[in-house]
Design a protein around this nucleic acid. Structure first.
Lengths: 183, 183
DNA sequence: ACCTGAACACCGTTCAAGT
DNA sequence: ACCTGAACACCGTTCAAGT
């Protein structure tokens, strides 16, 4: 019986930041943000909670920043011919897939994560040969719209103020047209 | 020496939901959301924390809902001739004045609070004689933009991706033009 | 280097008791 | 009716100790 070198004495793969973030994301997506505790995260990783601090010295703050970073990172498969509409659709899908992280992403002061997102959006604008000053406004307007709309979708019910069922996909597309028509 | 009727045996005004919400808002705006604890709130009200539960039986959940409701409520002084631009500016100012509540407002499932906001926005659209189907899209698009942009302002630094200082007021106004030009 | 166990200073909340 | 005191089951985190 050959023992793998990366298996330690307790016969488990050692902890890593990646595994910790992944497990945390699973808890948040499955049970909600309020259920993410260091002790529960430790359980999920089959480790005492205190072991996590060895990999994340800044503790829970660093864990939450890691979650935001993970969701804020640009979709890896951003095709070279993706336009603004594709980018917005992709980013919205990402936000809704990790709706539990949205409160963190929306309001934690995390310039690095925000910069990553803006950079990927700016890259799309650059490929579209949009002038620099227009691009700055467009980037923030579009990003604001996508984030804000995702928040509405998470907050809202299926009714709008006029007692009609809301098709959020269609509503998002219509708003996107509105924002991009002028851009 | 005349004793006011609303002064109780301990010589203090009795607790009320309004006073509790107001004190909570003061803590959140001054020290941040994470500093809002039932015990600290009790201290601020010169009362044991447990007294709060007599007025808010659902406890902290109800307290947070109350904060969201307070910020989401339409500005009382909405002038009869206010247009969409005025509404958006007023709502943004409200969000930024209570930036600490933003994470709650953005993502707590609170249909009542959202409905209140949408209703006040719809009222402005109605005065502008905007057709019903257009109004539905415009309301969500504009609201999404305002909320999302406020979130960007809170998250961001004074730098944007191109290393230029961002004038958030001007940036908001420019994006607002973009959104409203098409509407 | 990596993890554990016990401990500390907090939380939100319940519940019986006081006035 | 309104508030208090003590208690319970949790938190995040520190720190000495184990391997």
């Amino acid at each position: 019986m050959v023992r793998q070198p990366q298996i330690n004495a307790q016969n488990r793969a050692p902890l890593s930041i990646e595994r910790i973030i992944e497990a945390a994301l699973q808890i948040v997506d499955g049970q909600g943000l309020s259920r993410l505790t260091m002790r529960r995260l430790g359980d999920a990783l089959e480790v005492e909670a205190m072991a996590i601090y060895h990999h994340l010295p800044r503790g829970k703050e660093q864990l939450l920043d890691g979650l935001v970073m993970h969701v804020a990172a640009a979709p890896a498969d951003a095709a070279a011919d993706a336009d603004l509409r594709d980018w917005a659709r992709g980013y919205r899908a990402r936000l809704l897939a990790h709706a539990g992280v949205l409160p963190l992403l929306v309001t934690r002061r995390n310039p690095a994560a925000l910069a990553t997102t803006v950079a990927s959006l700016r890259e799309v604008l650059r490929r579209g040969a949009v002038p620099e000053d227009v691009a700055a406004v467009t980037a923030h307007t579009l990003l604001g719209y996508v984030i804000g709309h995702a928040a509405l979708e998470v907050r809202g019910t299926e009714e709008d103020g006029a007692d009609r069922t809301v098709d959020w996909d269609a509503r998002f597309a219509a708003g996107l047209d509105l924002v991009l028509r002028a851009a």
